[in-house]
């Protein structure tokens, strides 16, 4: 049963909280008792989607594990802005080792907990899309196929933001990055398959795979909670817009994430043992232009020398996602 938004309570479950909901129906983030896993004072940019997504996810995992959580972090923005000596923002036990080994380190932590008979202590590994879909992919796949008891969370902002916005295998076609500049006959990132890690994760047959966005908190919390209720390898990829890398206003982070989902550019779904079991439906479908235009990384598609044919190709990607995952409510529903 996929996540079902609660309607008819003014804002239902669309807002973070809702005083009209029963206490047990409320979100972790609405609670004054939330763990604030990443404390104030971290050095993320203004409006950082990753800082927000990480707190959403880790707080939810903390709530689901009753505070018995250890977090492993790949190198990247999240690690850099949260733990520059002499201050750490983390309120959970946390370890950063390398860029490409977070899944394996997490395997080690989980193994230690198992051997010590402390299986109530749960392990979360986290990294950006570069650390996950590229350099950490070998370790990730290994962790998956061994079905190690780790929840891996990828904060996907579609490029290497920490190093100055370079292309990753999660960068969408046409996007400008420092290594896919908007020059030449096909400006921006090339059109290709990219790397769909959620689907690759599903191909491992692991118990749980899901995608989520920072714009859909309740869905995100539901997925973390669900993942935490299971054992074995689990994977959640959270779309976290980066104001710096996307070239968007700091206050637009959530709006952009919402548009990514509402256009179909970022399909939000969940899968168990390799089979899709639920999708978060598009609420008000919009054309990809609405998602692309506020982002400077797509600015070359518009303006003086527009590339409508490229926009059309991106729309085709969105349409394909909508078809493939059934993101629209059926007329009869």
């Amino acid at each position: 049963m996929p996540y079902q938004p609660v309607k008819f309570y003014q804002t239902g479950t669309f807002t973070v909280g809702n005083r009209l909901l029963a206490p047990d129906e409320r979100s972790v983030q609405s609670s004054r008792m939330r763990s604030n896993s990443i404390n104030s004072g971290h050095r993320a940019c203004q409006g950082c989607g990753e800082a927000l997504g990480a707190r959403y996810a880790i707080d939810a995992a903390m709530a689901a594990s009753d505070g018995q959580l250890i977090a492993v972090n790949a190198t990247g923005c999240l690690e850099v802005f949260s733990t520059p000596y002499p201050e750490s923002s983390w309120q959970v036990p946390w370890i950063h080792s390398l860029f490409g080994n977070a899944p394996a380190v997490a395997t080690g932590v989980a193994a230690a907990m198992k051997v010590k008979g402390r299986q109530e202590v749960r392990v979360v590994a986290q990294g950006g899309d570069g650390g996950t879909t590229d350099i950490g992919f070998g370790c990730l796949s290994g962790m998956f196929e061994r079905n190690d008891d780790v929840l891996y969370i990828c904060y996907d902002n579609e490029a290497y933001m920490n190093t100055g916005v370079q292309r990753s295998s999660a960068t969408p076609p046409a996007a400008r990055t420092a290594t896919t500049m908007p020059v030449g006959p096909e400006p921006g990132n090339v059109f290709g398959q990219g790397k769909n890690v959620p689907e690759i994760a599903m191909a491992h047959g692991i118990p749980y795979v899901a995608t989520a966005t920072v714009a859909d908190l309740r869905d995100l919390e539901y997925k973390v909670r669900k993942a935490m209720s299971m054992h074995g390898a689990r994977y959640i990829q959270i779309f976290v817009p980066c104001p710096l890398g996307f070239g968007t206003a700091s206050h637009d982070t959530i709006r952009i994430a919402r548009l990514a989902r509402e256009t179909g550019m970022f399909p939000v779904f969940e899968a168990e043992h390799g089979e899709v079991t639920g999708v978060l439906k598009i609420r008000h479908k919009v054309a990809v232009e609405e998602y692309l235009q506020p982002q400077k990384r797509f600015a070359h598609l518009f303006g003086k020398h527009p590339h409508p044919e490229t926009v059309a190709r991106l729309q085709a990607i969105a349409d394909r996602n909508i078809r493939k995952y059934g993101l629209l409510e059926k007329e009869s529903d």
Partner: peptide, 15 residues
């Protein structure tokens, strides 16, 4: 304000 907690939730800085 009707206490929907959005500001409380969406602040990346717990501020």
């Amino acid at each position: 304000c009707f206490e929907c907690d959005n500001c409380y939730g969406v602040c990346p800085d717990n501020a």
